[in-house]
Design a protein around this nucleic acid. Sequence first.
DNA 1: GAAATCGTTCCGTATTATGAAATAGCGCCA
DNA 2: TGGCGCTATTTCATAATACGGAACGATTTC
Lengths: 275, 275
Amino acid sequence: MAETAARPRTRGRTRTRSREDTAGQVQSLARAISILKALARADDGMTLTDVALTVGLPPSTTHRLLTTMQHDRIVRFDQATALWHVGVEAFVIGNSFIRSRDLVVMARPIMRRLMEETGETVKLGVQDDGEVIYLAQVESRETMRAYRAPGTRVPMHCSGVGKALLANQSEEEVNRILQRHGLTRVTDKTLATPVRFRDALAQIRKQGYAIDDEEHAVGLRCISSAVFNEHDEPIAAISVSGPSARISDEKISVLAGMVTRAAKSIASEMGSRQG
Amino acid sequence: MAETAARPRTRGRTRTRSREDTAGQVQSLARAISILKALARADDGMTLTDVALTVGLPPSTTHRLLTTMQHDRIVRFDQATALWHVGVEAFVIGNSFIRSRDLVVMARPIMRRLMEETGETVKLGVQDDGEVIYLAQVESRETMRAYRAPGTRVPMHCSGVGKALLANQSEEEVNRILQRHGLTRVTDKTLATPVRFRDALAQIRKQGYAIDDEEHAVGLRCISSAVFNEHDEPIAAISVSGPSARISDEKISVLAGMVTRAAKSIASEMGSRQG
DNA sequence: GAAATCGTTCCGTATTATGAAATAGCGCCA
DNA sequence: TGGCGCTATTTCATAATACGGAACGATTTC
């Protein structure tokens, strides 16, 4: 291990990491994380070669990392289909993120009641990295219902929760986020121009609640209201969403009342605990 | 770097892993996982030394693994309190488990084992539209046995599965269902009055399991226990059922233990912690 | 029945993880 | 204010550990 200079540097490990951003990092762990992320993105599991290809690692290394994680059920291997999935233990660990946030624990019973009142799916989301991330959801009992698994991310500009959150932030903050993520058009009704979007925010501020009228998914309407902390900062938003057929124009004002009331009870619940 | 044989194998790192169960495992990754598990167990975050102590690693190693995970927001460090928590990304990854988990698939092996233990037919049912719908069943080997085709619906108030589910719901919910479907008398023993039924539910809550004593079919007894999800909501119930002749009063408590234990393993398989 | 494809294990190599120790922060008490 | 005890970080020499190419199996395909 002394004659490093003698050997041409090209041979050996295929990929030499750029020694700047990864200094002090544990390679194998970082690689395992990227594998996990890949698995989480795939809807129906991945084969070993799929995984190896997407993360850019040799199959043997990929396999070794996967089996290590399998040992603790972080990932699961389905023998029958030869596919790797995210495992139970990852779920259990991930859910402890929720428990560490009083918000979700407090909000859940109120969300449940709101679902009973409205009959529609109720979601709770926060802002994260310029996007909305859903933390919790209470599903409607209807056959035709809105569903978006907790833990998924959606753009802010075309979701009720996102707009409710943005409407209560400074103009600079809004600009920064729009600049970073853009106003991507997702459906015909997505507000895809800055002017229209800013008007919408003004409207939300005036009404106290946000509406997403098929701006994210065709046929899906959604009414949302922000939850404020004791410093009047919007820390989260809840929403009620369902098929446009059920969420008629006439019903909106009634639903909006229920949603804003629920948002306020969550806020007061948080305040009392001094979260 | 060629004389590997010359050096005595015993010296070196302080802890030599027992080369059997950890062969082919990636040490650093396995350690990182144990750190994550420790963090998940602690609801309110841990200091670095806490973590290092509980997983039995030097602080420097622990710190290096933590910062690597922090890079991808698998863990979060709260500067103000100097505490490490499970991070957003762990939540996002973990929740993708929901997409791949399947109650019936997870339950089946456990149901099979329960059938072997008890010798009786094991069924899995969920609540749908105020009724019980059976999703799966593992049949007893006896000639005389309980049978109910998967997919069939039965009233909640006179089935073990239904009662186990109802016992774990709010009073309003129970009232709504009873109002909608009534307490139809099916056999002589059916609990057909609200008072008797409510008493039965209280009893179930106390015991942790439900008994259907010929309330649905003459000569058929059934013991059932609910399966809870990660929010402690009852999502399903399993039952063991057979002829009253075989399911004697004395046998009930033994069978009940087996059923509740099986229900708990299904729950933990589905990601509810504390199985 | 041969070829191809994919998953798994082996094994020599040196890169990378390791942990002791040094250093940097941070209250806390005198 | 300054020194003391504590905990969090960073450094760095060392070799243990992760690495990946290649061989081996298992399965499917044609």
